[in-house]
Amino acid sequence: MKYLSILFLAFLISCKPSENKLTAQQIIDKAIVSSGADKVANSEIKFKFRDKEYIANRKSSGSFKLTRKQKDEKAGFISDVLSNEKFERLVNGIPYQVNDSIANILSNSVNSVHYFSVLPFGLNDKAVIKKLLPSTTVKDKEYYKIQVTFSEDGGGEDFDDIFIYWIGKQDFLVDYLAYSYHTNGGGKRFRAINKEVLKNGIRFVNYDNYKPLNKEISLIDIDKAFEKNELKKLSEINLENIEVQILK
């Protein structure tokens, strides 16, 4: 009877779900809440990035308006505006016609900066495909690793790019991200947090931007290369003058 009781107890323990065995979806959900990114869906966010002003107006209904403003010495004030309906360029407040190929490049450029500025918001979009990779440790901190790819339907022109996010096992915050891309000859990039700031409960992160010294370094092992100083710092991704208004 003693041995039967031990076996029965072992059976109950084995049947109890482990709190550590989270799915990729559960980890992303927790990361969005932990960073306050769930508030992004109903907000107006302004920031400056590399001498350009960015304004994002998003509503819980799903509508959005993403703007980039800049001053050109010859043309004057230029605004590139991407919304659910269209992309539009304004020069000194007047609509300016650009051909489809240029409009597509400008649209992707505006969307990219706004997308990265509020991560992990956006990682639950319909086109996102999530995969849980083996956990890892970077600089003595334990991380979940989530690979993100995109379906061709709704994934945009760069749907075949691959992203990896390092999400802290204790705080569920994104400290590192990496991606491979195919435009302009392709390549890999790794971003490491250098500063974080909270605005109205939303976490914004500045990153140091790296590339591998050796092209053969795989994307999945790029965190190991980072710890071995096998990456070259290219630039800093810094958001300045951040303002956040939560819409009612």
Rank of each mutant, 00 (worst) to 15 (best):
G36F: 08
G36M: 08
A37V: 04
A37C: 06
D38E: 13
D38V: 00
D38P: 01
K39M: 07
K39Q: 10
V40K: 04
V40G: 03
V40Q: 00
V40H: 01
V40A: 12
A41G: 14
A41H: 05
A41N: 14
A41I: 11
A41E: 12
N42F: 02
S43V: 07
S43F: 09
S43P: 01
E44R: 07
E44N: 04
I45P: 03
I45C: 02
I45E: 05
I45R: 01
K46L: 11
K46H: 02
F47W: 00
F47N: 06
F47V: 06
F47D: 09
F47G: 13
K48P: 03
K48A: 04
K48V: 09
K48S: 04
K48L: 08
K48E: 08
F49N: 02
F49E: 00
R50A: 07
D51G: 07
D51P: 02
D51E: 09
K52L: 02
K52E: 02
K52V: 00
K52G: 00
K52P: 00
E53G: 10
E53I: 07
Y54F: 14
Y54R: 10
I55L: 12
I55T: 11
I55D: 11
I55E: 05
I55A: 02
A56H: 01
A56Q: 14
N57F: 15
N57R: 15
N57S: 09
R58W: 08
R58I: 09
R58K: 13
R58V: 07
K59A: 12
K59W: 11
K59V: 15
K59D: 11
K59C: 06
S60R: 13
S60Y: 11
S60E: 10
S60I: 15
S61W: 12
S61C: 02
S61D: 13
G62I: 10
S63K: 04
F64D: 08
F64Y: 12
F64E: 04
F64I: 04
K65N: 14
K65R: 13
L66R: 14
L66D: 09
T67N: 04
T67G: 11
R68Q: 12
K69P: 01
K69T: 12
K69F: 03
K69D: 07
Q70N: 12
Q70F: 03
Q70E: 13
K71G: 14
K71Q: 03
K71L: 07
K71H: 09
D72A: 12
E73K: 10
E73D: 07
